[in-house]
Computed example of a mutant assay.
Amino acid sequence: MTSELLDQALVEEATKKSGLVWVRAAGAPAARALWHVWHEGAVCLVGDGPGEQPLAGLTDGGSAEVTVRSKDKGGRLVTWRATVSVLGSASPEWEAAVAELKGKRLNAPDGEEMPARWARECRVLRLVPAGSTLALPSGSLAERPVPSPATTRRPAPAALPRLLAGRRRKG
Rank of each mutant, 00 (worst) to 15 (best):
G166R: 14
S132A: 08
G171W: 11
S138P: 01
A158L: 07
V46K: 11
A14W: 12
R117N: 11
W38R: 09
C44P: 00
G88T: 12
M1K: 10
A14I: 04
A135E: 11
K16M: 10
G27N: 15
T15Q: 14
E12N: 08
L10F: 07
P29K: 02
L55S: 15
W38N: 05
A119R: 12
E95A: 15
V66W: 15
G61E: 05
G166F: 14
W94Q: 03
P161Y: 06
T79M: 03
R153Y: 13
W80T: 14
P149W: 02
G166E: 14
K16E: 03
E143C: 11
R126S: 01
P145H: 13
A158R: 12
G19T: 05
E13G: 05
L45F: 00
G51E: 12
H36Y: 01
S3K: 13
G88L: 13
S18R: 11
E93R: 09
T2L: 08
L87T: 05
A42V: 00
P147S: 09
A33R: 11
G139H: 11
E143Q: 13
R153G: 10
K73H: 10
N107P: 02
E4P: 09
K170F: 08
A97G: 01
L5S: 14
G19C: 03
V43M: 01
K102C: 02
K17Y: 07
R105W: 01
A142P: 00
G111N: 05
L136W: 02
